[in-house]
Nucleic acid binder design. Structure first.
Lengths: 332, 332
DNA sequence: TCTGCCCCTGACAACGTTGTCAGAACAGTA
DNA sequence: TACTGTTCTGACAACGTTGTCAGGGGCAGA
């Protein structure tokens, strides 16, 4: 900037004014400065700028995701990026792998970089650092997909419980009475909610929640496949499966295909996935609108950055049941 | 930091020393400082630090992707993140949507933020800004998935042409002589290479490249579906399809299912995708190792950041043919 | 001609750090 | 005791920018 000023024969402050498009610089000087800028290939240094500027805004937000490579996370990421970009803001994204220690590391790295705001999918609902550290630093944080129970904070999530209830009722309506549940670890809030919805629907239909029909610690597609095989090998096997997550759905379908039961055992899965409609039968799912979730979270965050100091808001989005075939297989 | 110094009764420089874990601070003072740090909840400001520090490193790299939400891009992203994190470096990722103007915007935003290095999937092979701007700023850049032709630069890519050749030969070996090609816009380097591999294989087998069997501007799954239907409606329809990208593969499969031809028309696709093995028939694909691609790109970049000033390197990874059924359907 | 006002412009300090260097305190040696 | 060397500490300037404020010049009105 000093060099530009020297070439243009003005002061650095005038260069600063031109670069920031402030008013009150004569056209002639502005032109001289612009020319010097392109001559020297000068690029504005945002870090130095935000250091001095009021509020020290860095035009940067941080994103704590489960895994940037997972389709749900990356759909959130993209939606948030789009909102951020419309305001000239860049996004740091970090993967936490459902691991509290890793989550804390990423959080601290983001705070060190003085992000203006944070959006997080919390690994655990009772993380205290996720609330206290941003608060201490004066950085607003919005939670997506899962709330946090250790304090009040903005949150955008889907109606996991209601959606699951609807999905399981759909199976009941097809005549099923032995409906199995396969889900992620109950420590994950969404998995717990989805199980609760399953239990709701069964009790609404006056059906018992059979322990032998429930698998609540399924962590991967391969585990889902094994768990499904073990469910099917029982004396009184389920006639329908409710799967609590897309990887689990895929594993379960694989197991059904393996046993040649894909046309006789019904499946409803939580979360849509690519080509679910190309399978035979096509898979009935409860879809959640991840882009919308991300967009809303970003807008909540930017409202905070714009000065909104109102009470914490909770936004709940509905899921939608997409009927494709696998969930409409009637009981034999 | 000034506050911490006041509380600990030392100078700011001593606080700086403790925070950076420099040697040569007596244990007593270091303890006093540490206590003051946690008492006040002080957090190191990396932006200010990098402003002053030699070389002005920001411990940050930038990633220019096609779309953070696309599975290939996000797999790259994750692999790069993992290498970066092991060095305490955060990653900015931006989506360019194959659009040169958008790419330029993201690039400039990253340069303004003084990223230490860049990794890019270039939208076009002859972008000059993508080389000149980082060079001017002294920021090393590594290209992934596609090279850039307008100058010498590090690049990590897959053997698109060789892989496609292998895939098409596989179809030829199953007796096919009318093999269609469906691919993305030829302006995208990978699409052009894959088409070249297709043409190579046909000429190797002394088969003509029939214009009526080639569709080179397919941009989405829906377009692929339409294009496939039009190919099949011809008087002399193809007996096999070679699809140049996973969304195209999905669209083509959908069209085949629609016409009930999935068991009579062979398909080999470039790029693997989730549940390709659950379809009926399961889809034979040429898989590329995206995480490895990302890892290698990140390591090349960090080698540059560590001072390697050698000539530009090109790394080429092989693809692997995964035989699953759809590509082994023999000609009737 | 002088006063007052507005418009431009630039000098200077400050943002939160760290590199440089000099000084203080102490121990060891002649 | 005087000198040297080592270890620890702090004052100061600087990184690249912008907020603040004051000064210079031009113009209208008295």
């Amino acid at each position: 900037m000093r060099d530009v000023a020297a070439v243009a024969g003005v002061s650095v402050k005038t260069v600063s004014r031109v670069v920031n498009q402030e008013s009150g610089v004569s056209e002639e000087l502005a032109d001289r400065v612009s020319n010097a800028v392109s001559l020297l290939g000068y690029r504005h240094n945002l870090a130095a700028s935000s250091l001095r500027r009021a509020g020290g805004k860095t035009a940067t937000i941080g994103l704590l995701l489960e895994d940037v490579a997972n389709p749900f996370s990356s759909a959130l990421h993209r939606a948030i990026e789009d909102v951020a970009r419309s305001r000239g803001i860049m996004v740091f994204a970090g993967s936490c792998d459902e691991d509290a220690a890793r989550e804390r590391d990423v959080l601290m790295a983001l705070i060190s970089r003085r992000v203006d705001g944070l959006i997080a999918v919390p690994a655990s609902p009772d993380s205290s650092t996720l609330l206290s550290e941003p608060q201490r630093a004066g950085t607003p944080i919005v939670f997506v997909d899962r709330p946090i129970t250790s304090g009040a904070a903005d949150c955008v999530a889907v109606d996991n419980r209601g959606g699951s209830r609807e999905g399981v009722r759909h199976l009941v309506a097809a005549g099923h009475r032995r409906i199995a549940f396969l889900g992620d670890a109950p420590s994950i809030w969404t998995a717990a909610e989805r199980y609760a919805g399953y239990a709701d629907a069964l009790s609404w239909a006056d059906l018992p929640v059979g322990r032998h029909l429930v698998r609540r610690n399924v962590r991967s597609s391969a585990e889902a496949e094994k768990a499904t095989l073990s469910l099917l090998a029982q004396p009184d096997p389920p006639t329908a499966l409710f799967t609590g997550q897309n990887l689990i759905t895929m594993g379960a379908v694989k197991a059904l295909q393996h046993r040649g039961l894909q046309h006789s055992v019904a499946v409803v899965g939580f979360d849509d996935f690519a080509v679910a409609d190309l399978l035979d039968p096509a898979i009935t799912v409860l879809a959640q609108d991840a882009p919308e979730l991300g967009r809303l979270a970003a807008e909540l965050l930017f409202r905070r950055l714009d000065g909104d100091a109102g009470p914490a808001r909770h936004v709940m989005l509905p899921t939608s049941l997409i009927v494709r075939g696998s969930g409409e297989i009637r009981v034999r």
